[in-house]
C-alpha cells in the first residue's frame, strides 16, 4: 500500500491497534468492534435476573435448576464506530519546525488507518474559521486511500481567525452520525475552545482532543524588546522578554494548560497534548497506548 505518510512497517503496527472510547459508541449498526453494549452478539458477557419481557431463549436453565431462580445470559454486541477526524488548518497550525499541520496530518492518518483497519467508519474534515473541506464517513479498507488523498490535499489556511465554536456548530448540524470526534488542533483559538468542545458533547459526540504545539510555543525563543504579531489575527503585543518575563510566560502557559485539562476532565473529554518534537510513531504506538486511547 504505497503512501507518502508512513512506511509499511509502521502501518503494520497500526493494524494491530484499535480505538478505545470512554463510553459506548452506539451506532446501531453491527460491526467488527465488540461493543460495551450487551445485546445480540455471540460472545457471553454476563448474567442478570430475569425481567418481564426478556427473551425466554436467553434464560439459563441450569442455574434455575440449581438455584431455583431465573437468570438470563447477556452477550456482547458487536457494532461499528464512527470516527470523525477534524483537522485544524488555521494559520497558527502552519507554524513551527516541523509544521504543526504536517504533524497533525500524520496523527489523523494514523488514527484513521487504525479505525479503518478495525472496520470503523471514518470521515474527515479540515477547518479554520469554518469547515473547509469534508470527507464523508465510509467503512471500507479502500477508504484509507481516499483519506490519505484528502489529508494530502488540504486547502490552504484561511485568512481569518480560526473558531472552534463556529466549526462545531456547523459540523454538528451537518453530521447526523455521532461517534468519536477526534479534534487535532493547537486549540489556540482567539474565541476560546470551551464553547466548541461543549457543543460537541452536547450533540453526543465523544470528543478526543489532540493538542499539537510547537516547541517555541512551549519555550519562546524571542528575547528583548519585541512586537509580537499574531499570524492569525494580526494582533500585536509589545513585550520585553527577559528572565522575569519568560517566567511569567511559563506561569501563564501552565495555567492555560491546567484550565484546558480541567475542562476536558469535567466534560469527560479525552485529551492529549504533544509537541512536534515527539515522533508521531512514539506518540501513536507508545503514548496513546499508555494513555489508553489505543489498545
Amino acid at each position: 500500500m504505497p503512501t507518502p505518510l508512513f512506511d509499511p512497517a509502521f502501518l503494520k503496527k497500526l493494524e494491530t491497534l484499535s480505538l478505545r472510547s470512554r463510553r459506548p459508541l452506539r451506532t446501531g449498526v453491527r460491526g467488527e468492534r465488540r461493543s460495551r453494549t450487551l445485546g445480540r452478539g455471540m460472545e457471553f458477557a454476563d448474567y442478570r435476573s430475569y425481567q418481564s419481557g426478556d427473551d425466554y431463549r436467553h434464560i439459563d436453565w441450569s442455574i434455575y435448576s440449581r438455584l431455583d431462580r431465573l437468570f438470563v445470559r447477556l452477550f456482547s454486541e458487536d457494532e461499528e464506530v464512527n470516527v470523525h477526524l477534524l483537522l485544524d488548518t488555521s494559520p497558527s497550525m502552519v507554524w513551527g519546525a516541523p509544521r504543526k499541520l504536517d504533524y497533525a496530518v500524520q496523527i489523523a492518518a494514523a488514527i484513521g488507518y487504525v479505525a479503518l483497519a478495525n472496520w470503523d467508519r471514518v470521515g474527515a474534515a479540515a477547518f479554520g474559521s469554518r469547515l473547509q473541506s469534508l470527507l464523508p464517513l465510509q467503512r471500507s479498507r479502500s477508504h484509507i486511500f481516499r483519506l490519505f488523498r484528502f489529508l494530502g490535499a488540504l486547502p490552504g489556511p484561511p485568512q481569518d481567525a480560526s473558531s472552534l465554536r463556529q466549526v462545531m456548530r456547523e459540523y454538528t448540524h451537518r453530521t447526523k452520525r455521532r461517534g468519536l470526534l477526534v479534534i487535532i488542533s493547537d486549540l489556540l483559538y482567539p474565541d476560546g475552545y470551551e464553547e466548541g468542545l461543549a457543543l460537541a458533547r452536547y450533540h453526543r459526540f465523544d470528543p478526543f482532543v489532540v493538542q499539537v504545539l510547537s516547541e517555541d510555543e512551549i519555550t519562546p525563543t524571542v528575547r528583548g524588546d519585541a512586537r509580537l504579531v499574531d499570524c492569525e489575527t494580526g494582533q500585536t503585543l509589545d513585550v520585553s522578554v527577559d528572565a522575569p518575563a519568560l517566567e511569567a510566560y511559563t506561569q501563564g502557559r501552565d495555567a492555560y494548560f491546567r484550565d484546558l485539562e480541567a475542562f476536558c476532565l469535567r466534560h469527560e473529554i479525552d485529551y492529549i497534548r504533544t509537541t512536534t518534537s515527539i515522533p508521531v510513531e512514539d506518540l501513536i504506538l507508545r503514548y496513546m497506548r499508555l494513555g489508553g486511547l489505543l489498545q
Binding site: 494559520p91 497558527s92 497550525m93 507554524w95 513551527g96 504543526k100 493547537d186 489556540l188 483559538y189 482567539p190 510547537s214 517555541d216 510555543e217 519562546p220 524571542v222 528583548g224 524588546d225 519585541a226 512586537r227 509580537l228 504579531v229 499574531d230 499570524c231 492569525e232 489575527t233 494582533q235 500585536t236 503585543l237 509589545d238 513585550v239 520585553s240 522578554v241 522575569p244 518575563a245 511569567a248 510566560y249 506561569q251 501563564g252 502557559r253 495555567a255 492555560y256
Partner: peptide, 30 residues
C-alpha cells in the same frame, strides 16, 4: 527607555496574553 522594537510573527499571542501584565510594554518609559 524602551528600544525600538522589531516585529516577531508568532503563531498566537494567546499564551503571551496570559502572562503577567509586566511583560507588556505599552509606554516609551517603563
Amino acid at each position: 527607555l524602551r528600544t525600538r522594537r522589531h516585529d516577531v510573527r508568532i503563531s498566537s499571542v494567546l499564551l503571551w496574553q496570559r502572562a503577567r501584565e509586566d511583560v507588556y510594554a505599552h509606554a516609551p518609559l517603563r
